[in-house]
Each structure stands twice: as C-alpha cells, then as structure tokens.
Computed example of a mutant assay.
Amino acid sequence: MEKNGLLRGLVHTYHGKDQPVDYYLHLDDEKIPLNDLLGSDITITYLGQKNCISCGRKTNKTFNSGYCYPCFTNLAENDLCIVKPHECHFDNGTCRDESFGETYCMIPHYVYLALSSDVKVGLTRKHNQLKRWVDQGAIRAIPIAELPTRRMAGKLEFHLSQYLPDKTNWRKMLKGDVTDKDLLAVRDEVYQHFPEQFNPFKLNENEWVDITYPILETLDKINSMSLDKTETIQGKLLGAKAQYLILSTGVFQTRKHAGYHVAFRG
C-alpha cells in the first residue's frame, strides 16, 4: 500500500482498558489503519513541500506543528494562553478570536492526574479527556476537578504544578519506564494542596481510566528521527504511543511533521 498526502499526525480510538488503542495515520482526509501493520516494514518519505494545515499556504517552515507564520501569529489556537491557560485574556477583550474563545475556552474543563512517565497534572476540555490522555501517552488517568472555564482550570493546574510536574518525560514514556502509582491515593494527597476557592469543584471519581497501547516491543535506546534530517524514515513498525510511531530504527513524532507532504508505504 502506498499513499501520498499532507501529514496531519496520528488519530486514535479508545476501546477500553482491555483492548489496545486503534491508531491511524492521518494523511489529507484519509486515515490509514496502523495496528494491522504492526511487525511490518513501513516507509515515510518527505516529498519536498510543506503547506499550512489551516490556510493551505505553501511555506518553507512550519510553526507549532503545521502552521505557516501568519496563522501562527494570528489564530487564537496558537496564542500563548493555549499553553499557559492561566494567562487567558478573553475577559479583557484581547482574545484573537472571540468565537474560538467561547467555543473552546469558556466551557467546562477538567484538571486531571495522568501517569505517563510519572504522575503529572494537566487540563483538558470536558469530553475531550481520552483524546488528550492518549496524545500524551498516559497509561492511567483520572479527572480530579471540573472548572467552568479554561482560565480557572489553568489557575488550578498552575498552582498544583508546584507539587507535581506538568510535563511528560517523552523518552521514559516511550520506553515504558513508568513507576506504578495509585492515582486515587495521589489525588487525595493533591487535594490537600487545593486553594479553598477550588474545593467546590473537586470530583470524587471511584476509579481511574487505564489505557493500553499497540506495542509489540519497546526500544532500549530512543533515537528520534526527523524528516528535516533525512528524506526517508523507514523500519519495522513496533508500535504507536502518544503521537509517536515506534520503529525498529527509532521513533518518529508525527505531529511535529504536520504540514509535510509525504509518501507512506506499508
């Protein structure tokens, strides 16, 4: 099978803790199933062109996983408050796109605990949590609070990041080098650090979500591969986790290469 198209990263479907996540390579509007290709050789070749994943403009360089520079500087989804939600400026009238803010930010958000490399704190839109957790490579996760807006969730996350990391060690995550943790016990400890004004938003879930990934084997050494350094990425497909393809030759971060025109063979 060979397909050419604009790479947009990986998409996935969660079926429950007893089944591995189904992964698909997103090329143009097509989603190529990857689980059936585990153990097979695949090739991804850069065809020498990049286009913005938003406006389609041809660009020599992409920003923030697939955008041209004008879209990077103008679109609300690329504003700094997306990665620093506690600095949301919707209320002071300087949001880049109020309709975007109303749709994606001024709605309920979860603050959660996730176990990927270690227990981390994060936030996500309500009903988007499974996508978020899989994209981060979490093997276990639980929401601990529900806030009415992204800004409020960001303020709580920022406060809790004093006690827990808010980043994932991607090398440990891909190696499966994760210490087993009881998230309910960690949550109870974290609740001791909640500022009083956030106590009414606590959740009391009885169990966490477990996530299994389609991985035949892990790598002892993580070698990151990039189409900016070599025209072709190839190797036996050993698995997929977060936004990474795990190959016998190294790992390939697909979202980082969003906007690249590639030929996929598998």
Rank of each mutant, 00 (worst) to 15 (best):
H127Q: 12
L75F: 05
T149G: 04
H15L: 13
K131Y: 08
T179C: 06
D182I: 02
C105N: 01
S65Y: 10
K181L: 07
R140S: 15
A240Y: 02
D180N: 11
L27G: 13
A138V: 08
N74C: 07
G239I: 04
E87W: 14
S248F: 05
I107H: 01
Q243D: 04
W208F: 14
E98V: 14
Y191A: 06
R171D: 13
T124R: 00
F194D: 07
T13V: 15
E196S: 11
T59Q: 09
K181Y: 11
T249I: 06
T13P: 02
D228H: 13
T212F: 04
F158S: 15
T124A: 10
P20D: 07
L115H: 00
Y23E: 11
K155Q: 14
C71Q: 09
K50M: 15
A258K: 07
M106F: 08
G56K: 03
M1C: 09
V83I: 13
L75E: 06
I82Y: 04
T62G: 03
C88V: 04
Q129T: 09
K120H: 03
T103E: 12
V190S: 08
L245F: 03
V251K: 03
I32Y: 12
I107C: 06
Y163E: 07
F63V: 03
P108W: 02
K256L: 09
K229C: 02
D188A: 11
V119Y: 01
I211Y: 10
L37M: 14
K229G: 14
E207W: 05
I44H: 09
K221I: 14
L147E: 14
I42Y: 12
